[in-house]
């Protein structure tokens, strides 16, 4: 792993990300836009799954999932670009490791929703309340993604190197 981190840091791309401030700042901007797309789509879906805003049709809300995946994808890519700057700085930062752990949990939660709940809640009549299990999944999803944003925002405060 150590060798891999060295390779990342010493690569042309790593050097480029360190030297070109505009490249880093553009990645940051795109990362923020990704946050908005991911969180916005999930907010609409999860609010409805919590049983609020029942005028929203559940099948409609679920059609926003590709936007959430798109937001996640651009954040994954820009996130990897940040790590190239200095992998050691990220992987020695406890908040970064917590953030990664929370993202994995959010992913498991989303997959569980996909296999265990999606079909059932799509079959609900318009304006119907959702079941307790669905509400739990939606609540956990919102909580996890909120914490993930907070961890991201607090990363610099917990950075050990620099």
């Amino acid at each position: 792993m150590r060798e891999f981190f060295f390779w990342m840091r010493e690569s042309h791309f790593g050097e480029y990300m360190r030297d070109q401030q505009w490249a880093f700042s553009i990645c940051e901007s795109i990362h923020f836009i990704g946050v908005c797309l991911l969180f916005g789509a999930l907010l609409v879906i999860d609010i409805r799954m919590l049983g609020y805003a029942r005028k929203i049709s559940i099948p409609w809300a679920l059609k926003l999932i590709p936007i959430a995946i798109f937001g996640f994808a651009i954040n994954l890519i820009t996130g990897i670009c940040f790590i190239f700057v200095d992998p050691f700085q990220y992987f020695t930062n406890p908040v970064f490791l917590i953030k990664m752990g929370l993202i994995v949990l959010a992913g498991i939660n989303a997959i569980y929703h996909e296999v265990a709940c999606k079909e059932r809640i799509c079959a609900l009549p318009e304006g119907a309340d959702t079941d307790t299990r669905t509400k739990w999944i939606a609540g956990i999803s919102l909580l996890l993604w909120t914490l993930i944003i907070l961890c991201g925002r607090l990363l610099p405060q917990f950075s050990i190197e620099g």
Partner: peptide, 10 residues
Amino acid sequence: MAVVVGIVVM
């Protein structure tokens, strides 16, 4: 930001 821009953009 994520709430406002997220919802508005959706």
